[in-house]
Design a protein around this nucleic acid. Structure first.
Length: 264
DNA sequence: TCAGCAATAT
DNA sequence: GATATTGCTG
């Protein structure tokens, strides 16, 4: 089914590519100066030609078999991309011996990939919420593993790979926001030191300190949301000490409330 | 087999 | 640039 689609594509859309594929010495720019899209495809195709041994190796037969319902026997497979490889050449893992028997150009990989690549999973807010819930139940993003998360989510349509990918992304996000937080803390601490050095505290500076205090609270809140508040608590404590603010109690109370919330 | 990471694609 | 998929490795 997909093969016939690809064949159709080859016969219609990629006709010029086919032509140039056969006469390789021909300059790319000749007939397609006004067709940016075609030229783009052409260049990609030529590039693919130059690296076809790499592309084809990546284009594993296992994937083709697994992804699509292709009725294909060994005879037909000689008509696949593999036939473009040198005779006797094997895949990186040596799964198959490849023998070129005839020369039938195939559509470029980007077209094949379009047909073979699985449909993108859309992580809806609801799905993500299930994911985060599962993470919380399983001890947080650093501890939970994809399989457990998937089982916990009880979402039949989800695959382990999808969860794994989402988890990877989620962890990266956390790491990123943590490092941003650290950078921000450094800035704030510098600001605090600066204030301490000054003997006279003008009104404007008082406002600034209030702003800093607000930011601490905001950070604590954000950190609480990602279940990693410890770091921010330490930073907030240091900042308060350096700034010599009178708001310690007020802030501690806020922290207490925040930390108690999950149990209530 | 699976988690984790990196490369690649969309 | 963000996000998803795929490939590779231990």
């Amino acid at each position: 089914m997909a093969i016939s689609y690809l064949k159709k594509e080859t016969e219609t859309d990629t006709q010029p590519l086919l032509k140039d594929f056969i006469s390789l010495s021909k300059p790319i720019r000749e007939e397609h100066d006004e067709e940016g899209e075609e030229l783009f495809k052409e260049k990609k195709f030529q590039l693919w030609r130059e690296n076809d041994h790499i592309s084809n190796a990546r284009f594993s037969d296992t994937k083709i078999k697994n992804t699509l319902e292709i009725e294909r026997d060994e005879e037909k497979s000689s008509n696949s991309l593999y036939m473009l490889l040198s005779p006797g050449m094997t895949t990186p893992k040596g799964r198959r011996k490849l023998v070129a028997s005839s020369f039938v150009p195939q559509p470029p990989p980007y077209l094949q990939q379009q047909a073979l690549r699985k449909q993108r999973r859309c992580w809806t807010p609801e799905l993500h919420r299930l994911f985060v819930d599962a993470l919380q139940q399983l001890g947080g993003p650093g501890v939970a593993i994809p399989k457990q998360i998937r089982e916990h989510m009880q979402e039949e349509s989800l695959t382990n790979d999808e969860v794994k990918s989402h988890l990877q992304k989620y962890r990266l996000h956390i790491r990123k926001s943590d490092s941003n937080l650290e950078k921000q803390s450094v800035v704030d601490l510098t600001c605090g030191i600066h204030h301490k050095k000054k003997k006279k505290v003008v009104k404007e500076e008082k406002h600034q300190r209030e702003a800093i205090r607000s930011r601490i609270l905001l950070k604590v809140l954000c950190s609480y949301l990602v279940q990693q508040p410890q770091h921010v608590v330490i930073v907030a404590w240091k900042m308060l000490k350096m700034l010599n603010l009178r708001g310690e109690i007020e802030i501690s109370i806020n922290l207490k409330i925040l930390f108690q919330e999950p149990n209530s």
